[in-house]
Write a protein that binds this DNA or RNA. Structure first.
Lengths: 158, 158
DNA sequence: GTTCATGTAGCAACAATAGCTACATGATAT
DNA sequence: ATATCATGTAGCTATTGTTGCTACATGAAC
């Protein structure tokens, strides 16, 4: 497992949801992501609890956005996933007796905390509306019909 | 997922090396880190290739620093470890056909690249001499004899 | 030549996401 | 009512990487 791609995956399905009229089933979202419906339900569970998406059972059920695109930041999504670890590196021992290791931790943790603060600030500054604008710009500038066919990313009502 | 602690571990043993007169065996370093001698040799291999440490076999052998503390940055050590992944999160697909996923990647990768640049700049700015100064400050300010006994971090010649 | 220490190779353990199946729950259509 | 559809969840396996360990070859010093 190279890394945690849940944030990336959730953003992907949220934008697909936004492009689709009416609810979208886990099965449809899973096809768009080349993954499994159960994975979609599992990763969207946290967002449902916080009201960013709503789900309905039964005929005509599925997922839809619970808020406007501009009212959901990447940090909101990240938080909804349970704030998974951002970094693949870190210290061995959080509270070592060894003074040498303490000195190492002080500097290394400081560097990581700085990077984390920057990252979270950036996640707070970007909304789903920004990602959607990026997508629509790409859609308008697409090279030809082929990319529309080969991709599942076309808006449902251009 | 702060799983990869090699950078932290290597910095730890390098400072111990600096505090010790003469070569230090993998066994001694392993005891200081609560790990195994083979792990020490494995993780120090990259640093040896780049001349940051030297190793000698046989009687009286072991490891010693190959350069002055001030001439080794945290980035040097990080590079010597093979530049392992810094982040635990990332995108699912590096080059997706889906325009939506492309839009997600553009923003997410941008954020991560910014954080990575900051991180690497900080690693370049900190030297082992800085960590050593931090350690000696902590050693001078230690609360009592207890911390000297319970820790393996005391300088060999105070 | 014996001892000590590095240099590697190789394997099991562990942790986390990811993918999948299976089944219960609930809502809608007929 | 009942069949159907979709979510909600539990539980298993696969994958990928570090970590810890053993075993053994290589080389240096006594």
């Amino acid at each position: 497992m190279n890394h945690d791609s849940r944030l990336s995956g959730v953003l992907h399905v949220l934008l697909h949801m936004a492009e689709h009229d009416g609810p979208v089933t886990s099965e449809m979202l899973a096809r768009a992501m080349n993954t499994n419906a159960a994975v979609v339900r599992r990763t969207l569970a946290g967002l449902r609890e916080r009201g960013f998406v709503r789900s309905e059972k039964g005929h005509g059920g599925g997922w839809r956005l619970g808020r406007d695109l501009a009212a959901i930041t990447l940090a909101d999504v990240y938080d909804s996933l349970g704030r998974p670890s951002l970094f693949a590196i870190g210290h061995r021992d959080a509270d070592p007796a060894c003074l040498v290791e303490q000195a190492v931790n002080v500097h290394l943790d400081g560097v990581l905390r700085e990077a984390e603060a920057l990252l979270l600030a950036r996640l707070r500054a970007v909304t789903l509306a920004d990602l959607s604008a990026e997508f629509h710009a790409r859609f308008s500038a697409r090279p030809g019909a082929r990319s529309l066919e080969s991709s599942h990313g076309g808006p449902s009502r251009p």
